[in-house]
């Protein structure tokens, strides 16, 4: 996670007033392979970073997982927006903020490199990759605690890997280990970053361009439902069809 990156953490701690918030429990999957081999991990770990002015208004939202470099760029942009917002006349702030996001929503974010990554970003992650983040020694009591130590994966990726061609693409991993032991698959992270930049950021800008006073409280459920594909009102987070749709004995 970018939060484990020392430069990102230093930027957040020194330039923002940071807090974290649990919006609901994360779904977990546990697979007991027998013989003491139990794999457990959380799924659908969607996140959102809200940047708010001291008056509580949401200035910007960074949706999902990002690589540290792009995340830093987005945070720096948000700082510039916050500085500008503070200088705007108070009565003009809502209109100027809406105009800022309206223009951002129309600004193309796709460059050639992003397009290349995005063409692969919908590839579902092969099951063996889900299970194989951490090599395990035979005969030892094993528990794969990979939930927070690797990038969490959406449930549909974990459940839906059926095409061998996509599997071959997704299996090309580039694992790096951060100083705190965090294992990051750079290829997956790059694809998530590209998807967030190309698809989710324009959606965020369009929402923030709407009339109204946008606070985290007023936006959270909508952002998770419409942008992050995780309906917080649904006990299955909108994944019921993925989980049960093809099950032959479903009642």
């Amino acid at each position: 996670m970018s939060l484990s990156n020392p430069a990102v953490a230093a930027l957040i701690s020194s330039r923002f007033e940071p807090a974290w918030q649990n919006v609901r429990d994360a779904p977990q999957v546990t697979i007991d392979f027998g013989g003491g081999r139990i794999l457990r991990r959380t799924l659908h770990g969607n996140i959102a970073t809200f940047i708010c002015a001291p008056d509580g208004v949401t200035l910007d939202i960074i949706p999902g997982l990002y690589d540290a470099g792009t995340y830093t760029t987005r945070l720096t942009d948000a700082l510039a927006l916050a500085a500008a917002y503070a200088k705007w006349p108070e009565e003009a702030r809502p209109l100027l903020l809406r105009n800022h996001h309206a223009s951002a929503a129309q600004r193309p974010v796709l460059d050639a490199a992003t397009l290349r990554l995005l063409s692969k970003s919908r590839a579902e992650r092969a099951t063996e990759n889900v299970l194989g983040d951490r090599p395990q020694q035979a005969g030892s009591p094993i528990e794969d605690r990979s939930s927070k130590t690797t990038i969490e994966i959406p449930t549909e990726r974990a459940l839906g890997s059926s095409q061998s061609k996509r599997r071959a693409e997704a299996s090309a991993e580039r694992i790096v280990v951060a100083p705190d032991g965090t294992r990051v698959n750079l290829n997956l992270l790059a694809r998530d970053t590209a998807h967030n930049e190309a698809v989710r950021r324009p959606l965020i800008s369009a929402i923030l361009a709407e009339v109204g006073r946008h606070t985290p409280e007023s936006l959270t459920r909508r952002i998770y439902r419409d942008v992050l594909d995780a309906d917080l009102n649904d006990p299955y987070l909108g994944l019921g069809e993925t989980l049960f749709g093809a099950y032959p004995f479903a009642r």
Binding site: F16, E17, P18, N22, N46, F50, I51, C52, L59
Partner: peptide
């Protein structure tokens, strides 16, 4: 300073 609110499932 602006507030940074990091929201997550979990």
């Amino acid at each position: 300073r602006p507030v940074l609110l990091f929201q997550l499932l979990g």
